[in-house]
Design a protein around this nucleic acid. Structure first.
Lengths: 225, 225
DNA sequence: CTTCAACAATAAGAACTCGCATAAAATCTC
DNA sequence: GAGATTTTATGCGAGTTCTTATTGTTGAAG
């Protein structure tokens, strides 16, 4: 992950830089507004961290400027406690998130990673489709052919994972990890139950079944046996 | 993650090795039982993948041998379909998990990572405690002082995260990521609700409150204000 | 080919989770 | 310091998710 930090306070800047490096990300730093804008425009970053108050050109202006150029890189705005603490203004200018100094580094990291994840999703794919099944990740709607299918949250998550791993067996362990966020065996048949409900909605009214069970192993989303 | 693979079938062995490498793990491979035992004893691995049937010394004997030496590295046993498929026997010998060939690589990866995660936890701690609060991660029981506290799954996860991050502020964003596995803002007060219920159980009947809210930022588990 | 055991599917009720609405508390403004 | 505003707390109902129990299916053994 490549991150540009625009921050005039050297202490804060270095704190962020070293933290991000430790987390395996690469960084670049600018210490005034104009330099920041220049680097942001020229380089290809996954995210920008921009202080609100900067010499030469303030943070919000940088954001407005790069947005005008059609650059949609996610931006996290930093603002010191005591500065005009107007989130709305920052977000209006085109910031994606807002963090008040002083902050815990873990918090910054969590937010930046969340931003990048969101922006990557949006860039590549706002939807998934397979074998006539269509899933809109934004509106959270699913359809097969012309027929709209209403899914509950868990069912949606389950199907999303299956659709991201088509034509291969996904095991119960994998599903527990990915969909349930369980790192232990719940000793029940939760997965079977939900898979059953999903089948009712996805496959029941169609001749071509998409969900297949692979006995002793798991399930697979594929066109044929 | 350093993994030792003990497998005589070269095809299978290479398949695992290359898969693990792609996932960013480092590997070593032994193709018979004795060699495997030697490398396992001398090297420092995060996990072992051991085939059950091996030339020179079978898989179960290797496991028994290294366990006798007090080595607790997690072991995943591989067994071919058709071999005596006795999970219990494998686990008794000291294996931590069991996988039948043929398997999808994703499955192996998921299991190995789960094992390592568990073992890392277990190495330091099968339990957490803080300020009189005690949490058993295996039995999933919680107590404060002598009083046992019954928590629901979400409450348990929430408290677990708090106990792993004591004496610092955990923000809602962090909680959403870690406990809810959400990468977006649900625009509701889910966290507040669960935090409230957790408080009822953890703090209500005690003078010393452990959960503190940090207004505008999040929550913290700490002894004093 | 039949029987048996293991595994999977499903229905239904119990338990849990969530989100709203309202209350309470903290902070800000004047 | 009083009122206004923002932020947090909590009771409760609606809807979702999970567990259990039962039935159905598959593959292996005899």
């Amino acid at each position: 992950m490549r991150v540009l930090i625009v921050e005039d306070d050297v202490t804060v800047g270095q704190y962020i830089v070293s933290g991000l490096k430790e987390s395996g990300h690469s960084t670049e730093i600018a210490s005034d507004g104009l330099a920041g804008l220049k680097i942001a425009t020229e380089g290809d970053f996954d995210a920008l961290i921009i202080d609100r108050m900067l010499p030469q050109m303030d943070g919000l202006s940088i954001i407005e400027s790069i947005r005008r150029e059609g650059n949609n890189t996610p931006v996290l705005i930093l603002s010191a406690l005591g500065e005009v603490n107007d989130k709305v203004q920052g977000l209006k200018a085109g910031g994606d998130d807002y963090l008040v100094k002083p902050f815990a580094f873990q918090e910054l990291l969590a937010r930046i990673e969340a931003l990048v994840r969101r922006s990557l999703l949006n860039e590549d794919e706002t939807s998934l489709s397979f074998g006539g099944l269509f899933m809109d990740l934004i509106t959270r709607k699913v359809s097969r052919g012309e027929i709209e299918i209403r899914l509950k949250p868990r069912e949606f998550q389950l199907l999303e994972f299956m659709m991201r791993n088509t034509n291969q067996v996904v095991t119960r362990t994998m599903l527990l990890e990915a969909v349930w966020n369980y790192h232990f065996d719940p000793q029940t048949n939760v997965i079977d139950v939900h898979m059953s409900r999903l089948r009712q909605k996805i496959d029941k009214d169609f001749d071509l079944k998409l969900i297949h069970t692979v006995r002793g192993v798991g399930y697979a989303l594929q066109l044929s046996e």
